[in-house]
Design a protein around this nucleic acid. Structure first.
Lengths: 151, 151
DNA sequence: TCTATTATGGATGGCAAGATCCATTTTTAG
DNA sequence: CTAAAAATGGATCTTGCCATCCATAATAGA
């Protein structure tokens, strides 16, 4: 139900949050997140235009989060690449329904609202801070990442 | 986030539930639900193969629900045309994650689980019974549908 | 200034979803 | 038995998503 592009974007941003505030090259991100490099570059361009990340070209350049991981929610990222569009008026165009959705569409919209709320409540910092044995994107159990600058 | 086909399928099935246990022609359903007739016929074929509806050809034929509206949930319909696929193992293929999803994918799967649960809890009968002024798919406020056999 | 590095933009291709059309089959009514 | 009604299956078309490749622009370091 979530597109592949959303999945890729989230992986990239979580990894950037893990490295924040340091910048990473798209190639490095692609390796860690196991996303096709050429396509990842497109996804990141989108994130860049949406203001989620900032990029710098040339030697020593790369991509970094535009804000701190504590300020960025999953919803911010999702909405940047493939916005969750709520149902605001009757999809059949029925006048009498209008803003008051019929029982069917009210339920569909409620589902969207739940997802939206869940994503809005979670920041990237929280994703990384969660006390669990498996660490986002990484094979190894929770250990503090330090330098790790090489390819 | 829900595909157009899911939307179409739900409209069709809700209308059939409203007419249950009578059968309706796809053309009639297309008019009421405002779905492109030719495409609706494809969607209904899918519902038929999934066992959600049954169809009969020829004069007096049409499509009807396979079960009573009280036994059919929104989830049944959704899963018939575009199954909600839960995240059961690490999408990156990380061995150490396996079934224990990392914090990121755990949250994504939780969102899917919430939607799945919400859809599983609602039967078509409940959608139709809801005391509200706007009636599913229909312009008019709640009035009991009777004959209405003509085109 | 030259070169290596890195992101950017454009062009392109494959593929599945959405949508349409038509010939065929099934079924009932007359 | 014939004709009309209705679903079915196949073919086709368009569009957007996923993905790749390459030329170009920007940037830092030597």
């Amino acid at each position: 139900m979530f597109s592949q592009t959303v999945e890729y974007a989230l992986r990239a941003v979580v990894h950037l949050a893990d490295c924040a505030p340091a910048a990473q090259t798209t190639r490095e991100i692609a390796v860690v997140t196991k996303v096709p490099p050429a396509y990842l570059s497109k996804v990141i361009q989108g994130l860049c235009r949406a203001g989620i990340v900032v990029s710098k070209r040339g030697v020593g350049g790369g991509v970094a989060l535009a804000q701190s991981p504590a300020e960025l929610t999953i919803l911010d990222v999702v909405n940047a690449v493939e916005p969750i569009v709520r149902i605001r008026k009757c999809p059949l165009g029925l006048k009498t329904h209008g803003v008051n959705l019929c029982p069917l569409h009210r339920r569909l919209d409620n589902a969207l609202a739940m997802v939206e709320a869940a994503f809005a409540q979670t920041t990237l910092a929280e994703v990384l801070a969660e006390p669990t044995r498996s660490r986002p994107l990484c094979e190894a159990p929770s250990r503090k990442r330090l330098g790790l600058v090489e390819k």
